[in-house]
């Protein structure tokens, strides 16, 4: 089975792209399934079910869906194998722009949204920089100039990676994507595999439920910002 990790900020078009690509893969006789990781709720499962795609949903609740993903990825793989899938997509939302579910040796896809503005590719961390394949959605509703500039910024943010435009609604560009995906490495097991980059540590007191504000409540991993005052006018 081929495992493909698909990551991208909320609502960029991950589900739309997976659906369009799955349709093409399905026509090639491949059995495709999806494991969806989100924090509070999702209705993606019904979108997948409507298309007859087997889907498993994990809601991380109070933890980051990408952290949650890594703790569950082996079971996820086993589930896909039990379903007899040829290709298993994991879909997760990089909420903090810093987390990334990408695993060394497992095809990593990052979805970015051209509507998010040309500075976005630079701001997204490992999720984009360490992906094998970058998919740009919503190119249909921005100007030609912004499309070109966005593509350029994606290339600077992840030089040499495969990148393409895919329209999540019409499916334009999805067949190129499907061609890339069928060539992904197979993942028989994840034992001993490593994440491409460590997730951010989540060990400050607020991570574990503290709600009180004030110096005395800040133990553990606390990082202080510098607030510079405006220089006095001469």
């Amino acid at each position: 089975m081929q495992l493909i990790t698909v990551a991208g900020s909320p609502s960029v078009g991950k589900t739309s792209v997976i659906l369009r690509v799955s349709e093409i893969l399905g026509q090639q006789g491949l059995r495709v399934g999806v494991a969806k990781f989100d924090s509070l709720s999702t209705s993606d499962d019904s979108l997948y079910e409507q298309k007859g795609i087997p889907v498993a949903v994990g809601l991380a609740g109070s933890i980051c869906p990408d952290h949650y993903f890594v703790s569950n990825v082996e079971d996820c793989l086993a589930w896909g194998q039990r379903q007899g899938l040829d290709i298993l997509f994991s879909e997760s939302a990089g909420l903090c722009n810093r987390c990334s579910p990408h695993i060394a040796g497992v095809m990593a896809v990052c979805v970015v949204d051209a509507l998010a503005g040309v500075q976005t590719p630079k701001k997204i961390g490992p999720m984009l920089r360490l992906a094998d394949l970058v998919v740009i959605t919503k190119g249909d509703i921005v100007s030609q100039v912004e499309r070109e500039v966005f593509a350029y910024k994606v290339r600077l943010a992840n030089p040499g990676a495969r990148a393409c435009f895919c329209n999540g609604i019409t499916g334009q560009g999805a067949s190129d994507l499907a061609n890339e995906i069928v060539q992904a490495a197979h993942t028989p097991s994840l034992e001993g595999q490593r994440l491409r980059f460590p997730m951010p540590a989540a060990v400050c007191p607020y991570c574990v439920g503290e709600t009180a504000i004030g110096e005395t409540h800040q133990r553990g991993n606390v990082k202080k910002m510098t607030f510079a005052d405006q220089a006095e006018a001469v």
């Binding site: 051209a114 503005g117 740009i136 249909d140 921005v142 030609q144």
Partner: peptide, 27 residues
């Protein structure tokens, strides 16, 4: 066909928007 940088075709469609808020010169 696939590489972004070799994109051969520019498309000027009617339903496009500007997302950035820049002057024409900056844009």
């Amino acid at each position: 066909r696939h590489a972004l940088d070799r994109k051969l075709v520019a498309q000027l469609s009617q339903n496009m928007n500007f997302v950035v808020d820049l002057s024409a010169r900056e844009f």
